[in-house]
Design a protein around this nucleic acid. Structure first.
Lengths: 156, 156
DNA sequence: GTCAATGCAAACTCTTTGCAATCTG
DNA sequence: CAGATTGCAAAGAGTTTGCATTGAC
């Protein structure tokens, strides 16, 4: 089982480093919020992180959790699942299919590829649960956004 | 280019059929909301669908759009992107990785597979945009949910 | 000591719900 | 015609913001 390519300690150091490099203060709350997120195997929402952090930092408030998480997203130290700040989106396609997702605008288009419908997964995945289907998400810039050609803030 | 395995007309018929079979009335609004969703190549949120439908059914209201969309989701005629009714979820893992997602509780765990990081895509995908990375989402039941062993309503 | 960061509470946005009027089958 | 469905408006949830106090550097 390969749970993590980076240890807990390594990640904490990476966080401190990332914050300092951006000239941002390393507070107790930020550390604990990040650690709570790292510790959680699945990918929790803000409220779940909040509850976890509160056990060690009882004074922490939910809005600090939100602010910290978005700060870390902006710094590229963490990310969100799916398009950032999602509203619910709907899909009229009930067939097995895959998605092209624009990382800029979030536009998502279907494509088909039978091979992708049931990919051969690494054995460790079985530890998480029983897989029924696989779906590929191809991420990139859609034509419209590529046309705009406005590079978002390059982080490095 | 294989834009759609099913034509617009076929899908409309499928909708009528699905509604009737469930003993649910086929209203003008439901038809138009569904058609608007089918027409849209990317996967719109409720408000976008609302704006589109309103051009042809000016009286339609946003809450009807929501109600209809969730109705169709319940009937299995459409689906949502990502876990239904999502809050924003966060990911502390900045490395290339893939996800196991539980279709029941939404728990999402990372796994690693270098082959999946850059899959060979069908050529038509290029029409949507320039792909940078590929990410695999393996869907199934996590151990906890499998333990509960409560089968959700089997649709067929 | 200075200025960013926090906690609180109120605001905001997206989504859902209750009810009388309307429309489908 | 009966009962489901709609539109309206108001409520609910999740998330964000303004401001005085607290804490990191």
């Amino acid at each position: 089982m390969i749970p993590d390519p980076e240890s807990f300690e390594e990640r904490t150091i990476r966080l401190r480093d990332g914050l300092k490099r951006a000239g941002i203060k390393v507070t107790h709350q930020r550390l604990e919020i990040f650690r709570e997120l790292v510790r959680s195997g699945d990918h929790p929402d803000a409220e779940t992180i909040f509850r976890g952090v509160r056990e060690r930092v009882p004074m922490v408030s939910l809005d600090t959790v939100y602010r910290t998480l978005w700060l870390l997203v902006d710094l590229g130290l963490i990310s969100t699942l799916g398009p950032p700040k999602d509203r619910v989106r709907f899909d009229a396609n009930t067939r097995a299919h895959h998605h092209f997702v624009c990382t800029m605008c979030g536009a998502t288009r279907d494509f088909y590829c039978i091979e992708f419908d049931r990919l051969n997964l690494p054995v460790e995945v079985e530890e998480s649960g029983a897989v029924n289907t696989t779906q590929v998400e191809a991420k990139g810039l859609c034509r419209e956004c590529a046309g705009k050609a406005v590079q978002p803030s390059p982080s490095e």
